[in-house]
Amino acid sequence: MSFNNLDTLYRQVIMDHYKNPRNKGEIDGDVLTVDMNNPTCGDRIKLQMQVEDGTVKDAKFEGEGCSISMSSASMMTQAIKGKNVDEALEMSEVFSRMMLGEEVDTDMELGDIESLQGVSKFPARIKCATLAWKAMEKGVKEE
């Protein structure tokens, strides 16, 4: 393996989300807030979600971490906005399977998330990619 193979991990779209994170910031008012960190590496995320009638109306995040964890958070917020909670959880399930390197057969529109597929080849980095999704799951399950 050489640096060329790093491209399977660090895809352009990932780097774009890292550099220009979508939905970064805080939501005003009384919304669902989840703080989560990855104790093995120190990455942390604060995820806020505005859930109305079972639908994720808005999602924003703040956090510190590597390109994988932060781009994944950016993509996740983008993906779940407008989805209902069940769809968001299903998407999280699909994402987890993708991280395990499993063939994912779904009708779901995955969009940018698909660019993280390469993470499955770097087992040490899977937890970086799943941090934001774990935070989302925790939040909606507590709701």
Partner: peptide, 28 residues
Amino acid sequence: VHPHDTATALDAEGIAVRAGHHCAQPLM
């Protein structure tokens, strides 16, 4: 460059370094 990304890149070159908080969060 986040240290995890540094460590992943170095690993691709066969170089093993540690990245993270080194079990010393107050020092971080």
